[in-house]
Amino acid sequence: MSAAGGRRSTLPGFGLTMGLTLTWLSIIILIPLAGLFLRTFELSLDQFWGIVTSRRTLNALKISFGLAFAAAVVNLVMGLIVVWALVRYRFPGRRIFDAIVDVPFALPTAVAGVALTSLFAQTGWLGAPLAELGIKVAFTPIGIFIAMIFIGIPFVVRTVQPVLIDLDAEIEEAAASLGANRWHTVSKVILPSLIPALLTGFALAFARAVGEYGSVIFIAGNLPNVSEIAPLLIVIRLSEFRYADATAIAVVMLVAAFLIIFAVNRIQRWAQTRIPAH
């Protein structure tokens, strides 16, 4: 970085493109978000705190963040397994499976919502056998969890995939020839070098799931304090004409979103500086 930073670029257009970038960024992102913050400044600190720490709000935030975290953990583990299978093994249909990993990203969330609900309702293909076992998925927190897993699938797989492909084969071979067994090689050599990518994927899946609305509301029971997610609470507050409440919850989620994204970009910088060390 220091090399590039020290060198003066001779390319033109920095001022112009940076100016345009900042202008467009301001119009679309910054001014609208500033409006959101300004709205919350109309509340006193006590009022803001009261809204954010009310039982219903806290529970909604807990549900959104808690289940999103759990879903991201599942995606971390399952994503690693999927990406390992896709990159390291050959099996029939591998290319198709590789391609469909992105379905949750490309499929509109409303479509995902109705599809998952159909699938997991007690009359659905998967819901019926699960109900026999006494497990209810649709209209319970498990339903939210399932929807959040669904939308988070591509993130871990897609961030880890290029790293795993590029991984230097010689390190593994060296470890093996030095007598490390396979498990040791994987856990002590391969996994550590995947950590930045895994963390990035995890954080992205988490961020996406926290804010998810479309696919969740169909399958969630929407019971206050039980299966009501924070974005839904924002919508509910809006339809109760309580703009202040809606914006206060939104601000909390927004700050969290920014922190996550900032962390992701930090992780990636860290990973870039880490690689030459290998």
Binding site: L25, L36, M253, V264
Partner: peptide, 11 residues
């Protein structure tokens, strides 16, 4: 620039 990725659509 990344922010909209993680902002809830509702917001």
């Amino acid at each position: 620039i990344d922010l909209p990725f993680s902002v809830s659509p509702v917001i």
